[in-house]
């Protein structure tokens, strides 16, 4: 027999922590926004994002992507810490004890509520040691300079590499293989061990698309095995 009285003994049954109407609060007239724990949030206007791209390009030239990637890595490091802290506090258990589906759903909702786009994790290539993250309607891609030749969401790639490195305890690199700013339907990011995912950079410069790059990465892994 299942006792409903026992099931409801714990009166706290949490829902969607990152629901936008609950998560983003503040005094809009005073221009202050904060999350539901009271931590300050900042809004990045589109013009500022565009200026960051343009300014870095002018100041650092070809290195601008690396600069943004490293900024993203730093951002992702703090983002992971805050995410884990907030989620485990709200759901009343460490993230290590959460089901993968719940954890992922939190990450997706978090991504969306922060205005970074719709996040999907593709585990099709997991057996080869790669994770693929697909993000649609990315704010980073929308602000990227048009007419580029390579994917431009460097900060996002940095955030993802840092987030998943801390999550898995391995040093993962992240390479973007498709970008909305280049006309793709979504932004694709490949995550994997640094030396395994690195060849994707050269294939990307050759002009290979996401599907081809994934096929080659998977084949190279198969060959090694």
């Amino acid at each position: 027999m299942i006792s409903v009285a026992d099931l409801t003994k714990e009166s706290y049954l949490p829902g969607n922590y990152f629901a936008p109407d609950a998560y983003i609060q503040g005094d809009y007239e005073a221009g202050l926004i904060e999350n539901r724990q009271g931590s300050r949030l900042i809004a990045l206007p589109e013009v500022l994002m565009e200026a960051i791209y343009a300014g870095l390009e002018r100041e650092t030239g070809q290195a601008s992507g690396i600069v943004m990637f490293n900024c993203g890595r730093w951002w992702g490091k703090n983002f992971y810490r805050r995410f884990v802290e907030e989620v485990s506090r709200y759901y009343n258990r460490p993230v290590a004890e959460m089901e993968m589906a719940e954890f992922l759903q939190c990450l997706k909702q978090c991504w969306k509520t922060h205005g970074w786009g719709v996040f999907e994790l593709d585990v099709t290539h997991y057996q080869y040691g790669f994770l693929v993250v697909k993000v649609t309607n990315s704010a980073f891609a929308q602000s990227a300079p048009k007419g580029g030749k390579v994917p431009a969401c460097f900060a996002e790639a940095g955030i993802l590499s840092s987030f998943f490195s801390q999550l898995t305890g391995r040093d993962l690199n992240c390479i973007q293989t498709a970008c909305e700013s280049l006309g793709a339907d979504s932004n694709s990011f490949v995550l994997g061990l640094r030396e395994r995912v690195e060849p994707a950079t050269a294939w990307l410069e050759e002009g290979q698309d996401h599907a081809t790059i994934m096929e080659r990465l998977s084949q190279s892994k198969s060959a090694e095995v």
Binding site: G15, N16, Y17, F18, A19, P20, D21, A22, E99, M100, A101, E102, L104, Q105, C106, K108, Q109
Partner: peptide, 28 residues
């Protein structure tokens, strides 16, 4: 959550605060 949404007469409350999050969890 449905009971609270009923009290508030606000179906969006149910949708955003729970269903958007729970749907994928149930599918998984």
């Amino acid at each position: 959550y449905a009971t609270m949404a009923m009290l508030l007469n606000n179906p969006e409350f149910l949708q955003r605060r729970l269903l958007e999050w729970l749907t994928d969890v149930i599918q998984a």
